[in-house]
Design a protein around this nucleic acid. Structure first.
Lengths: 238, 238
DNA sequence: ACTTATTGGGCTAGTGTCAGACCATTGATG
DNA sequence: CATCAATGGTCTGACACTAGCCCAATAAGT
């Protein structure tokens, strides 16, 4: 308990944290065309423009961004996901360590199941507006009809939508954080049509359970889905 | 999705964060006698000794700590929980805002249910060692035989033990964070023998479900327990 | 071709935070 | 009573970060 409560107050310095955040936003596909203007983005991230600019420059030099001045300028995303290679996956796992990997997968399992259950409970109580139900269905439809190129991005959007629709910013942040921690791994797994189809059935089960207000089924459906992903990971590592 | 991914990189300045952390550790009862030595604690919190000392001085001036020099000295906790008053509860809720309160309760519901389910799944897979099963039973026994004075502290310890036993530091941190956000509220609720007894039954149900490896039951048991707490809160606010 | 709004680029002065060294105090122990 | 190990108290030089300001470039609109 002491070790948990007296854990580090901050992760690292602002510069590194910002680079990491922006990089993940790019790899996640959350930022498609260009970043918001520096002044605006700095405010959103709660850092100074100087620090943000250092981070942007680092990403520019690493080839993720193309920065252009003047009106209608900005930091344009030049990154396109590289073709997945098993070597990348091994390196990504080696980089984070097997303990941290298990931690990240467990954490993701817990928060995403929790988010789905919360959302199902909301639906069960009849407090899920038509707009939110439709957004959920829309995200489902999008990911299930995605081409392999767009799949990861739309899959991320689907999962994060569940978290955000729960109505709890803290929970949404936790789910985003969990997803960020496994992005590199997921991006290194080849997207096979067969896997997409398999995942599609699970996505449907999740949405169905949520809309039916069945918390147990929703949690179980998410658990099964994430377990399948984890199994896929293990399979590629074996 | 953008707003979730591009959320602030850091909560505030190191000093304020540290004061908050230490204060919560004290109110939580995680620190009973005295804080660890400054050098050690600074390392644990990932901050410099200077910043830590500023935080300690602030808490000293606020009357939470008594700092003594020399060998066998240290920062001794002088805080004793004040008798709960309904006024404190109202003020605590007003301080955090109803939206943030709902957010915190939802978040707590999600991560604690998730942790219990993860732990139950571990047990179900036969990967829960005898030591960990015994710690869980011990915590249960402690909280269920607690006097009203010790109740909050041992209740916290019980809930955090579930999170820590899940084996995921990230999940444990999330649960601790969730608990921290509602501590002030819980501390403002009078501890009635009747509530303790009611909670005791729920605690037993949680442990039973976890040890039986029944993830659904574990999640449901935690959900019921937390729902009862939330209801208690609403009752005092009405 | 000119204007203009928007955007990145660059500077400065001030504050926050850090690592590390050294000093001062204390109480148990020989 | 003297010693000593553990602990808080203090200082310094360096670096990180911030707020705010003004400059430079750019492309749409006129």
């Amino acid at each position: 308990m002491l070790t948990t409560v007296l854990r580090p107050v901050r992760a690292g310095n602002a510069f590194e944290e910002t680079v990491e955040r922006l990089l993940q936003a790019i790899k996640l596909g959350a930022v498609v065309e260009k970043l918001p203007p520096e002044r605006e983005l700095a405010a959103q991230l709660g850092i100074s423009r100087v620090t943000l600019r250092e981070a942007i420059r680092a990403l520019q030099e690493a080839g993720y961004l193309d920065v252009r001045r003047g009106r209608y300028g900005g930091a344009f995303v030049t990154y396109t996901p590289p073709p997945p290679r098993q070597e990348d996956l091994r390196r990504a796992v080696a980089d984070m360590g097997t303990d941290d990997l298990a931690d990240a997968l467990t954490f993701r399992m817990a928060v995403e199941c929790g988010a789905a259950q919360v959302l199902a409970a909301t639906a069960s109580a009849g407090r899920l507006s038509r707009e939110r139900r439709e957004e959920l269905r829309r995200r489902l439809q999008e990911v299930n009809s995605a081409s392999p190129d767009d799949y990861r991005r739309l899959d991320t959007a689907f999962h994060l939508a569940i978290a955000e629709l729960s109505g709890s910013p803290l929970l949404a942040a936790a789910c985003a954080d969990a997803r960020l921690r496994v992005t590199d791994l997921l991006n290194a797994i080849p997207v096979l049509q067969r896997n997409i189809e398999h995942a599609a059935a699970q996505h449907e089960a999740i949405v169905e359970a949520i809309l039916a207000g069945d918390t147990d089924a929703a949690g179980r459906a998410v658990a099964e889905h994430l377990e399948a992903t984890a199994a896929l990971l293990r399979g590629f590592l074996a």
